[in-house]
Simulated scan of single mutants.
Amino acid sequence: MPAHTTTTSAPVSAARRELLRAAGHEAGHAVLMAVLDFPLYEAVIGVSRPLFGRPQARGHVHETCTGQDEPPPEGQVQDAVLTYLAGAEAQARWMHQQEGMDLETARALAIEDYAGNDYATARTLLRRSGGSLGWATARTRALVTRHWPAITRVAQALVRHRRLTGPQIHRLIGR
């Protein structure tokens, strides 16, 4: 099967595919934030449909109701890096499993098209902490794998509701 085909029998619209990808991405951030004991206010996803071009997914996870998340304290910098990297890794796994895309291709696409700001922030934090992107990437992949069932539940709920509160996310993952 070619890498770009979907594994489902029904065709998925471009807008729906973007929404599913955003759900996987934001669920990755949210679940790792919860697991690593960061504050978690909400996760939100949506899709904009420009007049020309493909639909664009959007989403965010906020720690506070103001949307102005604070830099992590010194002792949590490396864990914060993992939460930034988790979005792209979860999205890539989602694309691999749901769309049949090769995992390495999905990782490259998730980073290039969806996670540029996340990776820029992660790199800044790593410079501040003296951490390694290689270590952080490997640790993020392990955590996403370990918590994949929870990430899937949160992603599915995000697709249904478009917004989940921190307490709703904690209930979905059993925390």
Rank of each mutant, 00 (worst) to 15 (best):
I151W: 05
R58G: 09
L172C: 10
H4N: 14
V44D: 02
A150Q: 15
Y119G: 01
T5N: 08
T145G: 06
R93M: 07
T124Q: 14
A57R: 13
D69L: 07
M1C: 11
I173L: 15
A155R: 08
R175A: 14
E26D: 06
V35W: 08
Y114N: 10
R58E: 09
C65P: 10
G59Q: 01
L164Q: 07
R163D: 00
L133G: 07
L51K: 09
H29F: 04
Y41E: 15
T64Q: 14
T165E: 11
T8P: 00
I45N: 00
Q91E: 15
P11E: 10
Y41A: 12
F52K: 05
T105W: 11
L158Q: 01
A106K: 11
C65M: 14
V31E: 07
R163P: 00
T66D: 13
G46E: 00
G87Y: 07
A27Y: 04
T105C: 07
T145W: 08
I173H: 02
E89C: 03
A57L: 12
V44N: 03
G100F: 04
R160C: 01
H4M: 11
E42A: 14
P55T: 06
R162Y: 12
L158Y: 05
R49Q: 13
R107H: 11
G46C: 04
E63D: 05
A142N: 03
V144N: 03
E74K: 14
G131C: 10
Q156Y: 03
Q168Y: 04
L103W: 09
A10L: 14
Q68W: 06
V159H: 06
R49K: 14
T165S: 15
F38G: 05
Q98T: 11
R107S: 07
A57S: 15
G166N: 07
D113Y: 11
G28R: 04
I45K: 02
R123Y: 07
S9A: 15
I151M: 06
P149F: 04
V31P: 03
I151K: 03
G87P: 04
E26Q: 12
Q78M: 11
A155W: 06
I45W: 01
L51Q: 09
V77C: 02
Q168T: 09
P73A: 08
T105Y: 13
G131S: 07
D69V: 02
A106P: 08
R54P: 09
R146K: 15
R153K: 14
G131N: 10
Y84E: 11
M1K: 13
E104L: 14
G131M: 10
A155Y: 08
H147M: 03
